[in-house]
Design a protein around this nucleic acid. Sequence first.
DNA 1: CTTTGGGGGGCGATTACTTCA
DNA 2: GTTGAAGTAATCGCCCCCCAA
Length: 288
Amino acid sequence: MVSSDPPVQLNLLPSAPVPRSHASSQLRFPWLTDNLAVSEPAGSSDGPGRGLDVNRMPGMVATAEEAEDAAAPLSSPNSTVSSFQMDFGVGNGGRSSKRDLELETDRASSRASDDEDNGSTRKKLRLSKDQSAFLEESFKEHSTLNPKQKLALAKQLNLRPRQVEVWFQNRRARTKLKQTEVDCEYLKRCCETLTEENRRLQKELQELRALKTSQPFYMQLPATTLTMCPSCERVVTTAAANTTNNNNNNSNNNSLKSALTKPRLHHPFAQAQVHMQHQVQASKGAAA
DNA sequence: CTTTGGGGGGCGATTACTTCA
DNA sequence: GTTGAAGTAATCGCCCCCCAA
């Protein structure tokens, strides 16, 4: 009934869900050479003193996660990101060891970046284009990460695992939002189509009622039902099955036969016949 | 076998920061 | 230089699942 296009399914997520542990794979991306210097992110010219984060006052590290954040490097846009070799999903999928692995990685990261960070403020980072592109490619492969994948990505991009995790969370949220917008647009079109259809059907109904009052002859005919012709999408009246009157209205049957064999415009039964032929042809075509 | 508490991860909502027109 | 909108990194709180005790 709704003639709108089918809803668009944005291909924003990986086609297959990420298995808990799948064969390790190695990804190399052409824009990342061994000596590729990650481009300077926009706005990175700001000094570390600017953009003081009120949530991260110096010396206020309390929880393990905060320790992780505070100890980890800024995205160090000038650092060298070498040959991304993804080692995804090895071993047990590592739920139990996740914390240890992250802490270990963060300790390593903090060692590498103590001079940059100074443990002072943590301003909001802007990922470099290369980092974003790599994360994007990874997201195409898997929309979710297991702990090892997360660590591998973090290591290769010189980011904190938490940053990778957050990026994927936000990316999933954006994907969902986009898909929702697309769905919304589709439903809107459906609604418009149905509204128009309803308007047209109301008009047809009015026409049929007018026809009924102006041509009382058809009042004597068997009860009719409204049906929709699938081929032309017009409402037609068809004779309802009526076995009780079969024996006593031969005259009607004769006139009916003549009407059906010589369909005339605006004759309800003739219209019904024509539309039934349409239906048969349509169904034959569909079957073919 | 069932219950329970903790760890871990995902998600929605929100905040805060950056960029751009 | 200022401002508002848009984009996005990051946080918070909640929920669910899993697992060991």
